[in-house]
């Protein structure tokens, strides 16, 4: 049996569907220091979050660090975080001149046993969300495909 299926069974979760929460930039900013805590709490409940404005590289590393302290080998194996982390080569001339970090970009965060990044390049990310039914019942029909794509938006000054 695949580990993911086992995890769902051991947790005794049932029902179908996975909640996908779209989190606005306003909500994230309101959370301030609690951002990482909030994200992890939601992900540990089995939710997939779509963050309008993703995490900075430093916040993402902090998310990885805290995730490592909370991994439970049977019920929480970690996070999957497909997203467009701001890349310094994409900074505008003035941002580069001022040594500014690029703004964070759209990001998805989910529990690693449910969310799987399939393919990534700088412009498109393909991820799979395994629905609970599929995870529990031998994935009879195969995983559902979710493709998110984004065009680099206008950069903030």
């Amino acid at each position: 049996m695949e580990p993911k299926k086992r995890i769902m069974k051991e947790r005794g979760e049932e029902g179908s569907g996975i909640s996908i929460d779209l989190i606005s930039t306003e909500r994230l900013e309101e959370l301030g220091n609690e951002k990482i805590r909030f994200i992890l709490d939601q992900v540990k409940k089995g939710k997939v979050l779509v963050l309008e404005k993703g995490l900075t590289a430093a916040e993402e590393l902090e998310l990885i660090r805290v995730t490592m302290t909370e991994i439970d080998l049977d019920s929480f194996i970690g996070v999957e975080t497909p997203g467009f982390t701001g890349n310094i080569s994409r900074r505008t001339f003035f941002q580069r001149l001022l040594g500014r970090s690029p703004p964070p970009r759209m990001m998805v965060v989910g529990p690693a046993h449910l969310l799987k990044t399939i393919k990534k390049d700088g412009r498109t990310i393909e991820a799979l969300i395994l629905t609970r039914d599929e995870v529990v019942e031998e994935m009879a029909q195969g995983p559902k495909e979710v493709t998110s794509s984004a065009v680099p938006g206008p950069e903030e000054e």
């Binding site: 900075t56 590289a57 430093a58 993402e60 590393l61 990885i64 999957e80 975080t81 497909p82 997203g83 982390t85 701001g86 890349n87 310094i88 970090s101 990044t117 393919k119 990534k120 390049d121 700088g122």
Partner: peptide, 17 residues
């Protein structure tokens, strides 16, 4: 392997910051 894995990207962002 695909270089755009999240660990590479996150690490580079942190090293640059």
């Amino acid at each position: 392997l695909d270089p755009f894995n999240q660990v590479n990207v996150t690490l580079i962002g942190n090293l640059e910051a």
